[in-house]
Amino acid sequence: MLRTRVIPIVLLSGYSVLKTIKFDERRNLGNPITIARIYNTRNVDELVLLDIDASKQKRAIDFFTIQDIASECFMPLTVGGGIRKIEDIRNLLKRGADKISINTYALENPDFISESAAIFGSQCIVVSIDLKKGPDGYFIYSSIDNETTKLNPIEWCKKCEELGAGELLVNFVDLDGTMAGVAHDYINQIANAINIPLIASGGVAVPEDAVKIAKAGASGVGISSIFHFTNYTPLDCKIAMNAAGILVKI
């Protein structure tokens, strides 16, 4: 039976790892290669690396950082940040990425999802979606403002699937870095609306929150803060999940 994944999400800005709070306040955490090496020895299920400044700075995530990480990580790597060209995807795959996460540019040009999926296969294309809670419920949070960001998030999730995304990575911005508990009800709504795997992240404070995300129907639990700032490890999350009857790879 398929295991529910525990996936550390490593945020980069250029060459350094950082952690944000609600996507804003930042803490610098050092060198990405060292951090990836630690996760490699901890035998995590997968690693997500996102350069959160790449889109804003109109550049793509640094290819050589990815190459260094991939040379010693024999696990799936999802890489994202500033990707707007087929050539960017090709370059990252060559350097060891397995899946490519597209966020800003998918909103600007949704056809890029189908274009890239047609070339590299759906299994390679992850659409990452940032959600924020407003007075009328969740909305798509982005530095750009267009028709797509006005879409109901659930509709956008479905659209991404239709366009050929192989997986969704949904981040809850208000919960980011807060370790304040997870949006399991909304995760459940998304999970029920789509037929592709869903990774949900934001707000995991204790291993039991990973259980809640998994029970809400996510195929993978994205975690960042507690692995950086507390003593909890991916294994602790898996032990909690296993105890709650969720199948994990231990």
Partner: peptide, 16 residues
Amino acid sequence: EAKKQNLRLPHMGWNN
């Protein structure tokens, strides 16, 4: 044949 069984595709992740 995933639809009938309500399974997600791709079959993605770790399995024994």
